[in-house]
Design a protein around this nucleic acid. Structure first.
Length: 448
DNA sequence: TCTGGGGTCCTAGGACCC
DNA sequence: TCTGGGGTCCTAGGACCC
């Protein structure tokens, strides 16, 4: 909560649909619906002309067609949306170095970090007006709605008040008057489930929540959620505008037009998704330790299974093999409507070798013998010497057909730790069966 | 033929460690 | 025989957001 209205929230109006109408004049003034056009699609964005007919985001496309059969239904051109989004973010960064994008079509801007003579209501109103014009100019006609207030929470509330193509500045000190009569659902974090819980306890408006004790709200909603909501109901919000936020996970999921019942087909789909995730990881120069699959059954029940590897990976084979093994733990009889693969626990590539360094004391540096003959076994749990694109290394951990290799020799010293699928062509296992006489795992006993 | 895809954050229990 | 506590990591699920 700042003394001055210096947090700006910008929201592009019906963004995807607006880009389509900008690029195709024949769509202007007509209802446009962007989203999944297949049998199981949902609406991503509806133009204001379509909203008149009751078409909303997240509604099934089937229902949208029933409500507005004459609308143009488009599947979306994400490259164009990304380009337009970049243009908008550039305009915002021209105003202030502190810009926090929330999605392609939304961002916070910290006006306190901008070069302004003052942060009075008149000044920020003029700034916001100029900004909206600049966005329209830079994007070839896209309109934005802007809210300015003393906090993120109030700025977002403000930008919802005058849509589309509007501007609202909440003068410092007037926040509670504005907030009190609003339904609790205006508070970010209050979705259908929370709203229903609150309603059942007699909380309908922000004012109701404001009068409750924190203990009561916490009892109802849990510690973190309850505490946060109680604060927001009092207009208390000092969350800073944060420019750079690192991604924490990368995932891909697909809903299929018809339920998939064949196990081999499922494995093939997971393998392809794993390759997509790996490509995106590599592009971001990141790797991750935890592989998660998501399975939605024919009856819409959804489960997930995850495995944390010994070391981060960005290898398609490792992700694929782990994903396929995890699928083995899920009962898919009856078919699946959705499959997904994700990787979390992301680390920059550079941090991988640091991770390896932490284990120096447990595993003494030892001279690494290379076998005279090398072959690639289907699976050799006893093998502890490997060769790969990184050079020679030790098997350091394993699980579900995945081996983790530590690339370290007396000559080269500590190197990176990487995970591989055992059938990864980049990896050759040497000396299989070395530990036949021993129960020790390779990680416990790395010495020959 | 109701119900996308990409994310974030929180909770809760069990394992494990000190 | 009785009986710790805290901290962290991992896993599964759920709510929520755009």
């Amino acid at each position: 909560m700042r003394r001055e209205a210096s947090v700006l929230h910008l929201d592009l109006d019906a963004f995807f649909a607006a880009v389509e109408q900008r690029d195709k004049p024949s769509l202007r003034g007509r209802p446009v619906v962007v989203g999944g056009v297949g049998g199981r699609g949902v609406v991503a964005t509806a133009s204001y002309e379509a909203r008149v007919f009751g078409v909303r985001s997240a509604m099934s496309t089937r229902e949208a067609r029933a409500r507005c059969p004459h609308a143009a239904f488009l599947s979306g051109r994400f490259h164009a949306y990304r380009t337009a989004s970049r243009q908008v973010m550039a305009v915002l960064r021209d105003l202030s170095p502190l810009v926090e994008p929330l999605s392609l079509d939304e961002a916070f801007v910290d006006l306190a970090a901008a070069d302004l003579p003052d942060l009075g209501v008149e000044t920020v109103t003029a700034v916001a007006r100029d900004l909206r014009a600049a966005v329209q100019e830079a994007t070839g006609g896209l309109t934005a709605t802007v809210g300015v207030a003393t906090s993120k929470f109030m700025a977002k509330i403000a930008s919802d008040l005058d849509k589309p193509d509007g501007l609202t500045v909440v003068a410092p000190g007037t926040e509670q008057d504005l907030l009190r009569p609003m339904p609790v659902a205006v508070i970010p974090g209050v979705g259908p489930a929370t709203a229903e819980r609150l309603r059942a306890s007699g909380f309908r408006t922000v004012a109701d929540l404001e009068q409750a004790s924190e203990a009561e709200v916490v009892r109802l909603l849990g510690k973190a959620h309850g505490h946060g909501l109680h604060r927001l109901a009092h207009g208390l919000d000092d969350r800073p505008v944060v420019a750079e936020r690192e991604a924490k996970s990368i995932s891909v999921e697909d809903t299929y037009a018809e339920d998939v019942t064949d196990r081999t087909t499922m494995e093939g789909l997971l393998t392809r998704q794993a390759a997509t995730v790996a490509r995106r990881l590599a592009k971001a120069r990141q790797s991750g330790r935890t592989v998660t699959i998501k399975v939605r059954l024919h009856d819409f029940t959804t489960s997930s299974r995850s495995q944390t590897l010994d070391a981060p990976t960005d290898h398609p084979q490792v992700i694929a093999r782990t994903a396929r093994a995890l699928l083995g733990e899920v009962d898919t009889t009856g078919g699946v409507r959705l499959l997904g693969v994700g990787v979390s626990g992301l680390a920059d590539w550079i941090q991988e070798s640091l991770f390896g360094d932490e284990h120096d004391e447990e595993e003494p540096l030892t001279e690494l013998p290379l076998a005279e003959t090398s072959r690639r076994p289907a699976w050799a749990p006893g093998a502890d010497v490997v060769h790969s694109e990184h050079g020679p290394g030790w098997v350091w951990g394993s699980g579900r057909g995945v081996v983790t290799v530590r690339f370290e020799t007396a000559e080269t010293g500590p190197g990176p730790v990487r995970s591989f699928a055992v059938d990864d062509p980049a990896l050759v296992l040497l000396d299989p069966g070395r530990h036949e006489e021993s129960d020790d795992s390779p990680a416990d006993n790395p010495s020959p």
